[in-house]
Amino acid sequence: MAKTSPVYARIDTDLKENAENILHRLGISPSSAIQMLYSQIILTKSFPISLKLPYDKPKALGSMSHDELNAELSKGYESIQSGHAYTADEVDAMLDDAFGI
């Protein structure tokens, strides 16, 4: 068995809880995440890790609740009011990039 040493770090409680929730969803323990980080630092001689959860697929209109639909429509209206608008081609390109659709 490999010889191990403890690593102690003081971090913000919310940051720790949020990160550990994501690690749990990825199936990675906090200790494994630290070991992965240290291994990659040695291998690349840099700070290289880019782990992230996959994007959720966009919801179909029919699967949204009334409140969810209103919230999305409000965001769109506020975006238009603030001058942020996209052409249909731009939206298609963004959906293709983000979700492959």
Rank of each mutant, 00 (worst) to 15 (best):
A98C: 04
K75Y: 14
S39Y: 03
H24T: 00
I11W: 03
A93C: 11
S32Q: 10
L15I: 06
T44L: 10
S39P: 00
I11F: 03
N70C: 08
K3S: 14
R25S: 12
T44W: 08
H84R: 06
D96P: 00
G76M: 02
I101G: 04
Q40Y: 00
F99N: 03
E20A: 03
K45T: 11
D12Y: 06
L37E: 10
A93G: 12
N18P: 01
N18F: 07
L69K: 12
S31A: 12
S74V: 07
G83K: 01
I34D: 01
E68I: 02
P48K: 10
E17P: 02
E17C: 05
P48M: 08
K75I: 08
G83P: 14
L15N: 03
T4R: 05
N70T: 11
I28E: 01
H84E: 12
P6A: 15
G76F: 01
D97Y: 02
A60L: 07
D97K: 07
R25F: 06
Q35G: 00
S5R: 09
S31K: 03
G100N: 14
K16F: 14
R10K: 03
L26D: 00
A93M: 12
G27M: 10
K16T: 08
K52A: 13
L26C: 05
G27A: 12
K45V: 02
I80R: 10
D67K: 06
S65E: 04
P6K: 08
A85C: 15
E72L: 08
M1F: 05
A88F: 04
Q81M: 12
L95H: 04
A60N: 06
I41S: 11
P48Y: 11
Y38V: 03
I42R: 02
A98K: 03
N18Q: 15
H66Q: 06
I49E: 00
L23S: 01
G100T: 06
M36E: 11
E17S: 10
L69R: 13
T44A: 13
M36Q: 10
K57G: 14
